[in-house]
């Protein structure tokens, strides 16, 4: 019959996995954009791709050290935010959504095309960029160590520790910004940018700062994302942005910890669900194939997005009154 222990422990592993951390960080960036400033950035996948490729290309093609590669990624995303922001931040919210989606797709297509295969690896992507990061690992032990279901190698623990430290620092950073007068201006812009403009604030500049800051978070998330896997351009499709939105809405769009809780819940539930379906198919409880079982979870994510937005728009942690939706 179904090995429930295995299903549960696989799900528990996702709780602190680097992937969960990466999604949490990307969602925190979106919280700054969407939840606090009201910017409908649908190009977060593009920022993540720039982080992933910026890091990997710097190391593989140019032999940069880890810190240099991180700076290249951040620099690339700042430039991307500027290129994106200059034409779009004066536009209405829904235009911004479409333009950011388009820009993220342009980024993905440029990384996918065969034209730049020597540098980007085209559709096959990039790998073998992890040595520099692993060399910094202070942990040294053979095999795996840990507690309960969390048994990992020294390299994996190093990735986990670094990624969650980055997430924690980003949360702290965002929290202190959002309780400052700077954060107050952002929230004002979310409510009504003309009113804020009439009060003498340079709305355009604040939106740009918000776009850059959230984008840099996305870029860092992109770097964390490629630590446990390779860089594959197909990962950075529009659905990635949609999943991050699902996480953000699940946790609460205008909250600091919402993205983190949302990401944990999202991945644990998703892993639990796919583990359960896979085994249920195995033992013949469900009359579908394993591949179909995999697709069921995407259907579930779609339905969940709809239900949350309709019935609990403030998310799990959001204040009921502070609905983060721009009118």
């Amino acid at each position: 019959m179904i090995d429930w222990g295995q299903v549960f422990s696989n799900a528990a592993v996702e709780l602190i996995s680097p992937t969960t951390a990466a999604y949490a960080l990307a969602a925190l960036g979106l919280a700054i954009h969407f939840g606090y400033t009201g910017l409908l950035n649908f190009g977060q996948a593009g920022f993540m791709a720039l982080g992933a490729y910026g890091y990997a290309i710097s190391i593989l093609t140019f032999g940069f050290p880890v810190w240099g590669a991180v700076l290249v990624g951040i620099g690339a995303s700042v430039i991307f935010a500027l290129i994106l922001g200059v034409p779009t931040l004066r536009l209405r919210a829904d235009y911004l959504a479409i333009v950011t989606i388009a820009a993220a797709e342009i980024v993905r297509l440029l990384f996918t095309t065969n034209t730049f295969v020597a540098v980007t690896g085209s559709a096959n992507g990039l790998s073998e960029y992890k040595d520099g990061f692993r060399a910094l690992n202070p942990l040294h032990f053979e095999g795996t160590a840990g507690f309960g279901p969390w048994q990992h190698s020294a390299d994996d623990w190093w990735v986990i520790i670094v990624s969650w430290t980055v997430v924690a620092l980003a949360c702290l950073f965002t929290w202190s910004l959002m309780r400052s007068p700077w954060g107050r201006v952002l929230k004002g812009i979310r409510e009504d940018e003309d009113a804020v403009r009439a009060l003498g604030k340079n709305v355009y500049s604040y939106k740009m700062q918000s776009l850059i800051l959230g984008g840099v978070f996305g870029t860092l998330a992109g770097m964390i994302f490629i630590m446990p896997r390779a860089v594959i351009p197909a990962h950075y499709a529009t659905s990635l942005t949609f999943f991050i939105y699902a996480i953000l809405l699940l946790g609460g769009a205008a909250t600091i910890l919402g993205p983190v809780v949302g990401s944990m819940l999202f991945w644990v539930l998703l892993s639990f669900f796919s583990g359960f379906v896979a085994r249920a198919v195995e033992v013949g409880w469900l009359p579908i194939s394993q591949v179909q079982g995999g697709q069921l979870r995407f259907i579930l994510v779609g339905v969940a997005i709809m239900l949350i937005v309709i019935f609990r728009p403030q998310g799990l942690l959001g204040n009921k009154k502070e609905l983060a939706f721009v009118k």
Binding site: Y245, A246, F298, V301, G302, V303, I305, V309
Partner: peptide, 10 residues
Amino acid sequence: MIVSIGLALA
């Protein structure tokens, strides 16, 4: 709009 995104995925 976000509901339509969820609907599209589903």
